[in-house]
Design a binder for these strands. Structure first.
Lengths: 114, 114
DNA sequence: TTGACACATGCCCATATAGGAATATGATTC
DNA sequence: GAATCATATTCCTATATGGGCATGTGTCAA
């Protein structure tokens, strides 16, 4: 099988650098597609496609305004990623705990090899 | 072009569910490949491949112990992801600020359409 | 209606997968 | 050295992608 579809979940959606760039720009407010494209040096079509992916995983919302379509960020969708990585926080914050785990690993390994 | 190589950065590496699963298991201590594979219902070869990707982006470290090779988590590599998503935290935490931004968007849009 | 403008989609292609199967590499023990 | 166990790698295939390009769709104005 090939890799999972980007449209399937947020983790895949933000794996693409350009899409992350889009989200960063959108942090400062809603933007129409063309302005996004110009600001990021991307094609209109390409931008539109990326926006579609972002929309499908719930990372952006769109709102029609005349001819244009304003895209805005829906940051809540990023929360699962933040929380998932946060589940590893202690490993880079508390060196004591880290050391403890390491020692336990050593013991476990020794046990295993006997 | 195709999608960026998974080996290129951490965002891509953790886009794959099985790799995330591996990291979660490793949180409880170092593990040899076979045990990881068994615990996650994956092939030995498949597990080995995923571990290689994780190693190349610095998410795991390996240590030889006899015949086996123990893999351990290197959680620091997840920090950039945590921090990047954290940059959007205010959008889901502070409803006031969110509301403010929304109003600003409306103004900006109105300006644009005139 | 006809243009013009803003976006979205469809088509095509080169590429990087992830997974399965078989095999190679490494280390240990007899 | 031979057999064995633990991993890694190679070869293969089906698939999903991202980007370029052309075209479709929707909206507004004259």
């Amino acid at each position: 099988m090939a890799r999972a579809a980007t449209t399937s979940d947020v983790f895949n959606a933000i794996a693409e650098p350009q899409r992350r760039a889009i989200l960063v720009v959108l942090r400062s407010g809603e933007q129409p597609v063309t302005e996004l494209a110009q600001q990021l040096g991307m094609t209109q079509a390409g931008t539109s496609k990326h926006l579609r992916v972002l929309r499908e995983v719930g990372l952006v919302r769109d709102r029609k305004l005349g001819k244009q379509r304003l895209y805005g960020i829906e940051a809540r969708a990023l929360r699962p990623v933040h929380e998932w990585t946060g589940g590893f926080e202690r490993f880079w914050n508390e060196s004591f705990e880290r050391l403890g785990a390491y020692v336990q690993d050593l013991k476990k390994a020794r046990r295993r090899s006997n």
